[in-house]
Design a protein around this nucleic acid. Structure first.
Lengths: 338, 338
DNA sequence: TTGTAGGCGTTATCAG
DNA sequence: CTGATAACGCCTACAA
């Protein structure tokens, strides 16, 4: 036993409860896991013993024995940006209702490879995995394949998801925003965003949409990912001289949009007349700022809920082994900047 | 074995690796946990076998056997607000360096009692606990006492922490902001904040500081606890008529401060001349918005790091059982709104 | 409805 | 430096 872990008072375990309630350990286990298979008064006696002793079941031991950890590992780049907060929250809540704990791990953007993190999580024997994005490294794919653990990918889409997927098409978002701008008569466009796979997908969709209508795209620098307001302001300041005439800008996130709008007004641009701006994420800021700005809303709550639903179904054996792919709605919320 | 968990291909386990490397399982375990106690070539052979078989150790089994999960449970109200993001991130990183995984759980503000969540986490046998705040219910205290697990509380202070504590004094923050305003000649004050223990502590410190100087406090309504920009704008709009003369307002968070500033300018208040505002949290928004606003910066990174340091020391048995209490610095960052 | 036997995959401990 | 043995605390499977 390691130093510092010496438990002077032994932990209360299932056998202690069993002894106190004068039943077999297995009966205590049943009271906890399948109460309907125990007679009411036995159950009551056991529960009294549990309370009296302050028994907390050891899920580690239970997990080893049953080969089910009742735990789901979720890997998300960050929750700082509020981008992933909704899906994570609703996923956690929904899984909780189904009797699963969610262990949240933050991968950061790019630091350390994902496969290492996945391996670390797999070592804890999760019953399922929630991953962000749909592009896995070969290492990660191999790891997941041999682990044979149900996986849900969210927040992106792919023809061939690893297993299940609940996301949306970022290219389509870009295209939709382009169409939105085009429909309002814009002919000059700009994109400001981070160098991130999904942001790039939105960008390329945006560019496609523009090209289809013969619009002009003002070239812009990439931001580092996670984008900050200040960085966005700087970036806009740098590109401002290149903006000859009325321009429609699609920002990679609402933080970027806010930075752009802030700086643009400081520089004397009138928003939306000279510069129309659409953000992404529908953060509270997009509603709370003045002017409130147009943005793309993705139903993150639905995403988390659906992901949980698919995962729970799989865990309950209610679905086959086939791949499941669901897309979640998004739409443009028009406000005062377009 | 439950439906859906039938592993068609058996998992690779330590005995498989041992067989492949022609050593005893125990030797494989040593290669993984105490490499220096294994001869280099044996270790190499074992590592080859591990790679060849794609062995991922089962930490659940290991934890059961060693009684050490190498996992820390962290319970935080939310990470949506970016308030707790820094400490959580730095804590996670630091614990990771020490060989621990951090399992993050979100308690939400008030929904469900904390004791239930703590019990759920304890069932997974964490080697330590990170808790937010320093006020525990009797249930929670009892649970923690019987579990005999090292606990670090962060983000608040108390005379009698449960175990270890790394935080700061919210009352002192309030008092300091009051002194800051008083030093600038303010005589009329307001506080706008959420109905949350720590926000209330900041408020009472603020009120004490004002009272000591005979200032006037404009009465204000409480916000609901996670405060939003829009709600803050509404609240300010409601209190604005009561603001007779130059007023100094302390907001419970930078989001609230931003809402106040936004609405105040819309209503024609000049900031900071008629209305001085100080936020709390030093969110990116406080730097990125115009005007950039004065706020209280708390060194969240230091907090997470220190918390990890204390916990690791305790886990390594390098400290006694005495209570540890550390305070982390905070300071006012003066910008354009005061 | 309740109980018994055995094992889940790993590591502590002691022996060589 | 390496190995054999016996837990760790619980649950599956089967029996009563």
């Amino acid at each position: 036993m390691g130093i510092g872990t010496k438990r002077q008072f032994p932990t209360v375990k299932i056998t202690d409860v069993a002894a106190a309630a004068r039943v077999a350990p297995m009966t205590v286990s049943r009271v906890l896991n399948t109460p309907d298979r125990v007679s009411p008064d036995t159950a009551a006696r056991v529960r009294d013993a549990i309370d009296a002793l302050g028994y907390v079941p050891n899920l580690i031991a239970g997990g080893l024995s049953s080969r089910r950890s009742r735990m789901i590992a979720a890997i998300v780049p960050t929750i700082a940006s509020s981008m992933f907060h909704e899906p994570v929250q609703s996923f956690t809540d929904a899984m909780g209702r189904a009797g699963y704990h969610v262990m949240l791990a933050l991968s950061g953007y790019g630091r350390g490879d994902e496969a290492t993190l996945i391996r670390a999580m797999l070592a804890r024997q999760p019953d399922g995995l929630l991953l962000t994005g749909a592009r896995r490294s070969p290492d990660a794919r191999r790891l997941l394949a041999t682990a044979r653990v149900p996986v849900v990918e969210i927040w992106d889409t792919a023809e061939q998801p690893t297993d299940m997927l609940v996301g949306f098409d970022h290219e389509e978002v870009g295209a939709k925003v382009a169409a939105f701008f085009v429909a309002r008569g814009h002919t000059r466009f700009a994109f400001l965003g981070a160098h991130d796979v999904r942001a790039m997908a939105r960008r390329s969709g945006f560019e496609r949409g523009i090209a289809a209508h013969g619009g002009t795209l003002v070239p812009t620098a990439m931001l580092s990912a996670p984008s900050t307001i200040l960085e966005s302001r700087q970036a806009f300041r740098a590109m401002a001289p290149k903006l000859a005439g009325r321009t429609a800008l699609f920002a990679t996130s609402d933080l970027v949009a806010f930075g752009v709008i802030t700086e643009a007004r400081l520089l004397g641009f009138s928003v939306p007349d000279q510069l129309a701006v659409c953000g992404f994420g529908d953060f509270e800021l997009s509603r709370g700022a003045t002017p409130a700005f147009t943005t793309v809303h993705v139903d993150g709550t639905a995403m988390g809920l659906l992901a949980a639903k698919h995962l729970v179904a799989r865990l309950a054996g209610r679905t086959g082994g086939g791949a499941h792919r669901a897309l979640v709605p998004f739409h443009i919320i028009e406000r005062e900047t377009t």
